[in-house]
């Protein structure tokens, strides 16, 4: 029923996302050949930094790609229907307005989750193959020669959660904007809000040394531009970001429930 509408509307951009992730996978493979980390366990010490730093571009590129998908997906929900004047048809089906909204949101988040999980399974498998020798030698992934190793599985789960939270935030903010404007062009407002936040954050940091949280969850610690490990208190950060992400569809529901259709 409604699922068929959602799939129908999102199938092309989902295809686009899959294509993008395949390209990213190719990039990772290319990267692997360039940094030459495969094979010989004796090369662990000399290449471990390159190997562990492979996760940083994977995380950021994947986050950017899936967030872009989220941004596009937000433009094909109820906001679009309201803009093309099919809102009165949709909202005279015997369901609460919130039912449509949470279906949209849930479906998009499920798609994001599936895309992220599948792509990270793919990346994880690839990384496992190309870095097997190093991981066996060190008992996991070492970010620095002296740091304790982290398992590949937990690292991929962490990356998945990070990408999911960032893309979910982009989707939620943009979806909220389409409800506010009652049209698909709300995606422009959505991107405006996100860019506005980044600019505000930069200005506050520059003039007042105030640090606002970044839009992308910071999973990795860096020292002098070198990756040194994972950041602390990740659990709290994840919960806080999930709460912020959820605030937007809740606000959208309040607005939609009070709207004239």
């Amino acid at each position: 029923m409604y699922l068929s509408k959602q799939w129908r509307e999102s199938r092309y951009i989902t295809g686009l996302a899959v294509l993008g992730l395949l390209l990213l996978l190719l990039l990772v493979m290319k990267g692997h050949f360039m940094i030459g980390i495969a094979g010989d366990p004796s090369s662990v010490r000399s290449h471990h930094e390159n190997f562990s730093e492979l996760f940083v571009p994977i995380f950021y590129l994947e986050a950017a790609l899936v967030a872009f998908w989220g941004w596009l997906a937000a433009g094909i929900g109820i906001g679009k229907n309201l803009g093309e004047e099919s809102g009165s048809f949709l909202f005279t089906r015997p369901r609460r307005r919130s039912w449509f909204l949470w279906n949209d949101w849930g479906f998009a988040m499920a798609q994001i989750a599936i895309i992220v999980i599948l792509s990270n399974l793919m990346f994880g498998t690839l990384i496992r193959r190309i870095g097997m020798a190093q991981m066996q030698a060190t008992g996991g992934i070492q970010f620095t020669p002296d740091s304790s190793p982290v398992s590949l599985v937990s690292l991929m789960i962490l990356i998945s959660v990070g990408v999911l939270l960032f893309s979910g935030l982009v989707y939620s903010v943009t979806y909220f904007s389409t409800i506010v404007l009652k049209r698909a062009m709300g995606v422009v407002l959505g991107v405006g809000i996100l860019i506005g936040y980044v600019v505000l954050s930069a200005l506050l940091h520059h003039y007042y040394s105030i640090h606002l949280p970044s839009l992308i969850p910071g999973l990795f610690d860096f020292e002098n531009h070198r990756l040194t490990g994972l950041v602390g208190h990740l659990g709290i950060s994840i919960i806080a970001r999930a709460a912020v992400m959820m605030a937007f569809p809740i606000a959208a529901q309040v607005i939609l429930d009070r709207s004239e259709i």
């Binding site: 509408k5 509307e9 229907n81 093309e84 004047e85 099919s86 009165s88 048809f89 949709l90 005279t92």
Partner: peptide, 8 residues
């Protein structure tokens, strides 16, 4: 009401 359904 409005003679507009899902256009696609």
């Amino acid at each position: 009401i409005e003679k507009m359904l899902l256009p696609y």
